[in-house]
Design a protein around this nucleic acid. Structure first.
Lengths: 343, 343
DNA sequence: CTTGGCACTCGCGACTGCCGAGTGCCAAGA
DNA sequence: TCTTGGCACTCGGCAGTCGCGAGTGCCAAG
């Protein structure tokens, strides 16, 4: 099939280009791959592929380079995610199993992902919205300062400082702690928020002496549990891997460095979490950030069971080894999910 | 005084070089500064300065560039830290006052520092050793999983997962919580650790049913409060500022990127915290990391009152605006200290 | 000690010519 | 209809050359 060979040629071009980082010519192609045809034939195929927009020439008299469209076809149809070796799987499991708490899981994941892919890794902290409240505590730091500590079912701990206008007695504090606990512990985020509102209303209606404090603490708690700041938290690792792309500094490294500082941008990059084992690949201009037109994102969702609490993935140049990278992202997501499962 | 003029020349060279990023020649110098002498005289002075090792020529027919030794003299004797404007001070105060908890303070500081200096900022989390234990809680996450939450006087929250061999009843848990609380709350880290050990010994001696759990929880707690991992935590920000040094990628950007990933290296870079208002400047090769011979560190300690709980600072190319940078570092350290004071 | 003059150095950018990888097209063969 | 070898052509990159100009060191006079 002529069609098939053309796709073989495209695949060969992508593989060679990723490996050598240099435009690949017809002669080099036939030498490095058993295509069974002459360079001239390959040239004809290349002409067609270029016509159709899958490859391009940086300049006349240079080899071909895959376009974003070319990578897209490659990822969609010309390759399969190659499973990781047993040894690699063990290494992942060992590395992640040592985690002490949720934050540690996230940190380890991002490190691991960066090492495996040799790209910049990004891991979103699990979002709160689907979790329930496991425990609430109020600690008097000083006369008029309370520390509100909330522990969620995911193991995440949120804390907020609350400054009061007037001090509370130990009894009042205990009572407040008790009322808030009853209104929220075991509840989902959404239910807790509405229960807290009822609590505030009730306090105001009864004209309790501590109505104001109740309101303040409730507000802080609502803010803490529904605050999108928590949803926006991400861990980043492997920025040093950018050093490998010392060339293309302005097109790839610089904008990416800037994006890494802006966690909001990063979250847009990661995009909507894909569920199940599916790994999302967003190539070059397909992404939401213009400046990052020459970078790709490989990401997938993770979370306990079938839930998808957050997204993790990597960001790298469009010219990357997609099969391996996708495998690594998928594997890490799986193991992290499993760990969350156990917790 | 001839001596004095030579120092003026050195100061002018440093200032011009920092501003223009180009070797500065004798003619350009007299044009840009009111030195009151001719280029020829300046040339003689330059020859002497070079002789003494304060400046160097990148190549024969080029202007002069300050050496590390030159910068050192400049920082030590030729400049004063210029105080920040009232507006800048207000901006710093406003920015930091919005912080919600300790982590937030650290994050805001690192951002602020990066913005003010346009360099890479590094802020060490306050170390635990001098703080006391404010609160301890044990939450049953599942039958055999406990979450240990420790709140320190600095506002820092530490958490650890503890897996038990056997489950505990609610009463046993409450008892354990009570015993641990009594042994540690209000105590310093060191005292808590020894008290916990007594607790374990007592439990073993009395052959309590929950001796094993007591041991496990106590161990986790000791680990959590004395663990050096906490001491080693740092926040990094402003890596995007490295983009400004797209030139000198290999000598400055790459090694720095790599160092930023290694928090241990960063801590070595920050070095021993200096107390009081003193700002430490470590120039080029003076630092502990060979690879970073062309970067300087400007750092200082911070903490509530006169204590120095941790260090913060910036890392940038040796060719940086020291007076301004030192001022920014000092100002941020002061405000952060003040905030910790209040808490 | 300062200054103007002067010869000297040498990095850098502009320019040139050449090499070779790679292409497109074509005509012949399968 | 597809494949293939041949061939002329293109053009980026590299090495070599060259002149400019910024900057220097030295010297003799003020």
């Amino acid at each position: 099939m002529v069609e098939d060979r053309r796709l073989d040629v495209l695949r060969a071009i992508v593989e060679d280009y990723v490996a050598t980082e240099e435009p690949v010519g017809s002669k080099a192609l036939v030498e490095r791959h058993r295509l069974g045809v002459s360079p001239a034939t390959v040239r004809n195929d290349m002409a067609v592929l270029e016509e159709e927009g899958y490859i391009a020439q940086p300049h006349t008299s240079a080899g071909r380079v895959p376009t974003d469209k070319g990578y897209r076809l490659f990822v969609d149809r010309l390759t399969t995610v190659k499973p990781m070796s047993a040894a690699e799987k063990r290494a992942i499991a060992t590395f992640l199993d040592g985690a002490m708490d949720l934050d540690d899981v996230v940190h380890r994941s991002v490190r691991l992902l960066a090492q495996l892919t040799r790209q910049v890794a990004v891991v979103q902290y699990p979002v709160l919205s689907r979790s329930t409240i496991r425990h609430v505590d109020l600690i008097a730091l000083s006369e008029i300062r309370l520390l509100l500590v909330i522990i969620l079912s995911t193991g995440r701990v949120e804390q907020r400082l609350v400054e009061m206008q007037v001090g509370l007695t130990e009894e009042q504090l205990a009572d407040l702690r008790h009322r808030i606990g009853r209104a929220t512990i075991g509840q989902s985020i959404a239910d807790s928020a509405s229960n807290l509102q009822s609590l505030v209303d009730a306090a105001a209606a009864s004209e309790r002496a501590d109505a104001q404090v109740t309101t303040e603490v409730a507000a802080a708690m609502v803010e803490a549990i529904s605050d999108h700041r928590s949803d926006e938290r991400v861990a980043v690792g492997g920025a040093a891997n950018l050093a490998r792309f010392g060339d293309s500094f302005d097109t790839a490294v610089r904008p990416l460095l800037e994006a890494l500082e802006e966690h909001v941008v990063l979250l847009r990059l990661l995009g909507e979490a894909t569920t199940g084992g599916a790994v999302t690949v967003r190539i070059g201009h397909e992404g939401p950030v213009e400046e990052l037109a020459s970078t790709s994102v490989v990401a997938t969702g993770y979370g306990p069971g079938d839930q998808t609490l957050a997204t993790l993935g990597i960001v790298g140049p469009t010219r990357m080894d997609y099969p391996t990278t996708m495998a690594a992202v998928r594997a890490v997501a799986r193991y992290v999910s499993r760990i969350l499962d156990e917790a």
